[in-house]
């Protein structure tokens, strides 16, 4: 690959990294896993003056649940760390379901969760999970930290609200009210392909009662689609057949797909409907089995 020329910086502290971004005046980019940025450099779609490589900053590879039950994912936590995590397998079903479906095994060893959310690709799996989970990004800049809900973090394809001198330092999934249930279903032509369509479902449940629901859609809009109406329709329900099919129809209505070589718009809408129903029915039937 022959990208445009760039300066390479490798700070060892977050403050140093922020200072480099600040000095870059919008022409500096963070390099974390590089699985989206490097291809863009190769194609010369991105031509930053400076790359600020944060891989040598210690202490950013973590993921853990805090005492209150919120999940924190550090800026250098790789997809593979999440895929292999026992705490996530036990404690966060939506993310656990999506982890093995992100890209391919090679990309997963290097790419980062937070970097993927920052990249703002409407095909990104993690943004859908985070929106369904009401997750937020913690950004740190010269003036300290702030929290930004993922729902309002990504503003368009490959665009986010970070200031030029801010770093997304971690992603946080708030503690569930009740028991966390979830699913992520994705249709892809091949492992590593972007989703033809995918559906993230996150439910907080008490017994078989839905206390809070989140549904978000991958690959069927200019940005990740928050199917809020579909999710809200489930609140208070017991995932009976009627509420499942109503939510599935509302989710399909929320999708804004377009036809391309992966499939027609109407087909993608159909898949959103089918996958939403299958995800919810799957949760309902595992509830029944548990009962």
């Amino acid at each position: 690959m022959y990208p445009s020329r760039f300066n390479y910086e490798s700070p060892s502290t977050i403050d140093e990294a922020i200072a480099l971004l600040d000095a870059g005046r919008g022409e500096a980019k963070i390099l974390a896993g590089g699985q989206s940025l490097v291809p863009m450099l190769k194609l010369r779609f991105a031509a930053p003056e400076t790359l600020v490589d944060i891989n040598n900053i210690p202490g950013l590879g973590y993921h853990h649940f805090d005492e209150g039950g919120a999940l924190h994912i550090g800026a250098l936590c790789r997809h593979e760390d999440i895929e292999k995590s026992t705490v996530i397998a036990e404690g966060q079903p939506t993310i656990a379901a999506a982890a093995p479906l992100v890209a391919d095994p090679i990309v997963r060893t290097r790419g980062t969760f937070v970097g993927s959310v920052c990249h703002g690709d409407p095909q990104g799996d993690w943004a859908a999970c985070m929106i369904a989970l009401d997750g937020f990004i913690v950004a740190q800049g010269p003036n300290g930290r702030r929290e930004i809900p993922v729902e309002s973090f990504v503003t368009g394809p490959f665009q986010n609200v970070l200031a030029h001198n801010e770093i997304a330092i971690e992603a946080v999934v708030p503690a569930p009210r009740g028991e966390a249930r979830g699913a992520y279903l994705k249709l892809e032509r091949r492992v590593g392909d972007f989703a033809t369509a995918a559906v993230a479902v996150a439910l907080d449940m008490s017994g078989d009662m839905v206390l809070r629901a989140g549904i978000a859609l991958t690959g069927v809009g200019g940005t990740t689609v928050n199917a809020a109406e579909a999710a809200d329709s489930l609140t208070g329900s017991t995932l009976d057949a009627d509420s499942v099919s109503r939510a599935a129809e509302l989710a399909a209505a929320a999708a804004q797909p377009r036809s391309d070589h992966r499939g027609s718009a109407s087909y993608k809408r159909h898949i959103v409907n089918t996958f939403t129903a299958r995800a919810l029915s799957g949760i309902a039937s595992s509830n029944e089995r548990a009962a």
Partner: peptide, 8 residues
């Protein structure tokens, strides 16, 4: 034979 085509 993409799923879309078979579905159609």
């Amino acid at each position: 034979m993409l799923p879309d085509r078979v579905h159609q």
